[in-house]
Design a binder for these strands. Structure first.
Length: 586
RNA sequence: GGGGUUAUAGCUCAGCUGGAUAGAGCAUCGGCCUUCUAAGCCGAGGGUCGCAGGUUCGAAUCCUGCUAAUCCCGCCA
């Protein structure tokens, strides 16, 4: 319909140009918007207001000329000049009835778009360090990233979802050492646990499991472990030096093979927990990509060599630096430390290099907003690798601030004092959690009030949308009980009976679904889809209260049922995309 | 000090690639269940869109400055 109007307008403009009534060389993009107010018709364009400046005329006069030159069309019943120079289009309701047939025919596919044209897009999200269970902060990235991926797929992109597993590096060594120390406690040793170790109960669980399966195979007397270790912070020392010394001691006493064994049990158990957690949350991946693999298979070396060949690396203070400041970063970055170890950034360069080589047209990284300063250096790396950095889109998700009993909650993984995503799901359910997370713009700071989420579950807006769906299902169930038989064709033949204000409004909203979906996908803004579904649910509830569907008049009844079933289908499609269930009874 | 994000109703947030009277939910107040599910509907009150300038036919939206909140600025990841 939008395109029809655009064609009409372009024809009018051409006529005016031919007549010499309009003196312009280039036509700005014609914007046609759905009118918010029904008094302003169904669609409106501000073309005359925009053109007035370049054509140097009064906008209203120009609008009148356009109006006069506008060809007639069956679907357009009335065109009006309004306000400072808007042109309002009133659409023939009959033309809008077709949407019900379309929805019925396309079913689950209704609303899907081909605008993505099969372009390969990779969405990488969550990618939390496997040092502990996911907490509610990760939940937002999980919900947001997965919906963005699903939306892009619905918009016709070829989407791959990936989780980058940071299974290399110091954090994992701290985890492995924490597990081992808890294991020593299982063996009966008594000592003060390092302040910088992972203190969560899940570490004890893993340690207990190792103790159960391997008894005392990894046991070392605590005196040998702590011998000559620098003091921890609470004892007046440095917590970083303390934990690093313990890591080295663990490797020495256990031997590399046994150390790896403990390490792998910790990594495996936590990763399996994360996978199960996300899966239960409706978040699924095509790939779990290991950072360690990049190191092992030489990808990091390969990427760094490429940078070196391009003259982007130099040595200073015993370390190897990447001259990222020459490519837009604020300063140069270390890629190989003085001690010979790669930095996290080095593997990240290799990781993005690897992504590029896999042939994606577009890379989307979903990061926590605290990583925003990291963007310029990754872009610099991509350019240094000879790639087009516009292929990379980084979507930042602001952290949710968690409140309980009016008190801000801490969310440190290290302290073990945090609320897990699993706890949240158990408390409010998958549907409400997903809906709640995706409801807000990702750049918006979010206050997550746990008391509200738990105690006022019934007021969560997700139920409002689900309730609309359940109501349609209920109507369909009542059909039999009332002794009616639905006749689909009779309804389709009598759609013009749907002339009530609420019915016309619903038709317009149904027709808007595909646009809402496409916009949400292209702008990476899931909340636009949620807003749409809330609008649709609201209009349905209003309609439901204003009119009886199961009336004696069969043609009217079947027409209304067809409309209501179209609503049901669109609700199902939208909620399905969000991976939120559609209960038939509530 | 530099940078990112945010600031809209009592609360939580939409609206932001400039458009017509700034919206929703919750909360408050008043109506609607012998009739398809009241987890719903209808109505009322509630706003100097953080502040000050600027751009123009028109600014919550764009620009500049300021204020406040928050995050980042490591040879950690």
């Amino acid at each position: 319909m939008k395109q029809t109007i655009e064609t009409l307008i372009l024809q009018a403009v051409d006529t005016l140009k031919a007549n010499g009534d309009l003196d312009i060389n280039t036509l700005p993009a014609v914007t046609i918007e759905r009118s918010r107010d029904a008094q302003h018709g169904d669609f409106a364009t501000n073309l005359a207001l925009i053109l007035a400046k370049t054509a140097k005329t009064n906008p209203r006069q120009l609008a009148e000329k356009i109006l006069a030159a506008l060809p007639a069309h069956d679907a357009v019943t009335k065109v009006e000049l309004a306000g400072p120079g808007f042109i309002n289009f009133f659409i023939n309701p009959a033309a809008q009835y077709a949407i019900i047939n379309t929805i019925h025919e396309q079913g689950r596919d209704f609303g899907l778009s081909t605008i993505g044209a099969g372009k390969k897009v990779q969405v990488e999200f969550v990618s939390a360090n496997p040092t502990g269970p996911l907490h509610v902060g990760h939940g937002r990235g999980a919900a947001y990233g997965s919906v963005v991926a699903d939306l892009l797929q619905a918009a016709g992109f070829d989407v791959e979802r990936e989780y980058y597993v940071n299974d290399a590096g110091r954090q994992m060594d701290i985890l492995a050492t924490s597990v081992w120390l808890r294991y020593l406690e299982e063996c009966g040793e008594v000592f003060v646990f390092p302040s910088n170790g992972y203190r969560g109960d899940y570490v004890r669980d893993i340690a207990a499991k190792i103790h159960k399966n391997s008894a005392t195979a990894y046991h070392q007397p605590i005196a040998a472990v702590l011998d000559n270790i620098p003091a921890d912070e609470p004892q007046g020392g440095d917590k970083e030096l303390h934990i690093d010394a313990l890591i080295d001691r663990a490797k020495t006493l256990l031997g590399l093979e046994n150390y790896r064994a403990v390490f792998q049990v910790g990594l495996h158990d936590i990763l399996e927990d994360i996978k199960a957690d996300l899966s239960e949350f409706g978040v699924n991946y095509q790939h779990w990509f290991s950072e360690q693999q990049l190191v092992d298979d030489g990808s990091v070396e390969k990427a760094l060599n490429r940078l070196r060949d391009g003259g982007h690396l130099y040595e200073k203070d015993g370390a190897t630096w990447f001259a990222s400041s020459e490519l837009g970063d604020e300063k140069d970055r270390v890629v190989v430390r003085e001690n010979g170890q790669y930095t996290y950034f080095a593997s990240d360069i290799a990781y993005h290099h690897h992504k590029l080589e896999r042939g994606f047209d577009q890379l989307i990284d979903v990061w926590g907003a605290d990583h925003h300063g990291y963007i310029p250096r990754v872009r610099a790396a991509m350019r240094a690798l000879g790639a087009d950095d516009s292929k990379l889109t980084v979507l930042l998700v602001q952290f949710a601030t968690l409140w309980r009993d009016g008190v801000k909650q801490q969310m440190g993984t290290r302290s073990g004092n945090f609320i897990t995503l699993r706890q949240l799901r158990n408390e409010v359910g998958k549907d409400a959690a997903r809906f709640f997370y995706a409801m807000r713009r990702s750049e918006q700071h979010m206050d997550f009030d746990l008391n509200l989420a738990v105690s006022k579950t019934n007021e969560n807006p997700v139920f409002y949308v689900q309730y609309a769906y359940a109501r349609v299902c209920s109507v369909l169930r009542q059909l039999d009980e009332k002794g009616f038989q639905r006749n689909l064709q009779l309804g389709m033949d009598n759609l013009t009976l749907l002339s009530a204000e609420h019915e016309i409004a619903l038709l317009g909203t149904l027709a808007r679904y595909a646009e809402a979906l496409e916009k949400a996908a292209l702008q990476h803004e899931p909340h636009l889809l949620i807003n749409y579904l809330r609008d649709l649910a609201h209009e349905f509830h209003t309609y439901y209260n204003a009119h009886q569907f199961l009336v004696e008049d069969a043609p009217l009844r079947d027409a209304r049922l067809n409309l209501v079933c179209a609503v049901k289908q669109v609700l199902a499609n939208g909620l399905g995309l969000l991976n939120i269930t559609t209960p038939e009874t509530m």
